[in-house]
Simulated assay, not measured.
Amino acid sequence: MASEAVIPRADRRLRRARQATLLSLATGVWATVLLPAVGLTREADTGRVALGAVGICAFAAAQTAVLYAAVTPWLAQRWRRRAQVGLAVVAALTVPLVAPVAAGAWPTWAWIGAALMGMAPLLVGLPAAVAVTVGTLLVSAGVAWWTDGSVGRYLAVTGGIGAAVAAVNWLQVWFWGLLVEARQGQAAQAQLAAAEERLRFARDVHDVLGHSLTVIALKAELAARLAPVDAERAGREAAEVQRLAASALTEVRETVRGYRAVDLGEQVAAVAGVLRSCGVRCSVPTPPAEVPQPAATELAAVLREAGTNVLRHSQADWCRIRIEREGNAIRMTVANDGADDRGPDEHSHGLRGLADRLAAVGGELRVRRQDEVFTLEVTVPVPS
């Protein structure tokens, strides 16, 4: 079928397991029908044979509906209750319909009782199942007394065969429940992975756009202020805005495509260039050449946020960026003067988000402030 092609492999396996469970349970159901049907062959009264056949077939149909509901987890609860109530009603009707069949010659209703007792663990909890079992045994003994049958034989068939049927049915449905739970666990794990990937992607897009748009806004504001008094410089700033916008668009496209590799040296140079263009003296020693790509990605994200904060939340005259390797870790320090008491706005990713991101890879982010000097220090582990 065409729909089969779009069903995940795990779901196809689960569907086949469900079909196998249904087939096995149905085989047991119809096996319990055959044994009561033996009584029909030993009954001379055609009226009793007809009524008995109706009762046996109705009980088998009600059993099938209940077992189908037991292995169909998406079925509405109201349909489960209706199937269970239907089985209870039909089981009660089998006493006058089936019990008189082959009275004294074959324990016809005892086999119905065994099937009903075998169904009890699938329908109700343990206390109720015990009550159903006791009630079924009492009814079986009463039917034996009413039809002049052997009470011991009836109880042996109902109790012994019923316990075996209950064990088989419970085991099969238990295994089916384990399969459903395992599949639900896989689905939950896949959803969690997708949510984490969406969060990572949103964070990366924020890191790229947050820094770029902040600089573009500042440059555009500067160009607007310079336009009436220095048209030439305003034009240069406007051209810089255009270049930054094109660069941001390229970075976003590369992020969306998922292959953006971070060159830490380029990122440091870009942030330093933006700071200098905004009048902040920037000191940047050459970063280590052997920074692994995962560490470079994390450091670049922090560097972009730090550069943005220098422009938005300080009146800095200078900024120092230092990156060095210390054993099995890369340490980056960003310090600037002119720190004020303003915090990031409500839409900012902020240092708390960066700290959470670094903690996920075993890194650490620390900040300190001394007078007007704000220092951000980041440590990211790297393989030895």
Rank of each mutant, 00 (worst) to 15 (best):
V130Y: 11
A131P: 04
V134F: 05
V134E: 08
L138N: 08
V139R: 02
S140L: 03
S140A: 15
A141Y: 08
A141H: 06
G142T: 04
A144C: 01
A144I: 01
A144Y: 00
A144D: 06
A144W: 06
A144L: 05
W145K: 01
W145G: 07
W145I: 04
W145C: 04
W146Q: 07
W146Y: 04
T147S: 11
D148H: 14
D148W: 07
D148V: 06
G149I: 09
G149P: 04
S150E: 03
S150F: 05
R153V: 11
R153C: 03
R153K: 09
L155V: 12
A156H: 00
V157H: 06
V157T: 08
T158S: 12
T158L: 06
T158I: 01
G160C: 01
G160T: 08
A163E: 04
A163Q: 05
A163D: 02
A163W: 01
A164Y: 09
V165D: 02
V165T: 00
A166S: 01
A167M: 02
A167C: 07
V168Q: 00
N169F: 12
N169T: 09
N169D: 12
Q172W: 12
Q172Y: 05
Q172V: 09
V173P: 00
V173D: 09
V173Y: 05
W174E: 06
W174Y: 08
F175A: 11
L179I: 07
L179M: 10
L179N: 07
V180Y: 01
V180P: 04
E181C: 01
E181H: 11
A182C: 08
Q184H: 14
Q186M: 15
A187L: 09
A190H: 10
A190T: 13
Q191E: 12
Q191F: 05
L192K: 09
A193W: 00
A195I: 00
A195T: 08
E197N: 13
R198V: 06
L199K: 11
L199D: 03
R200Q: 08
R200A: 15
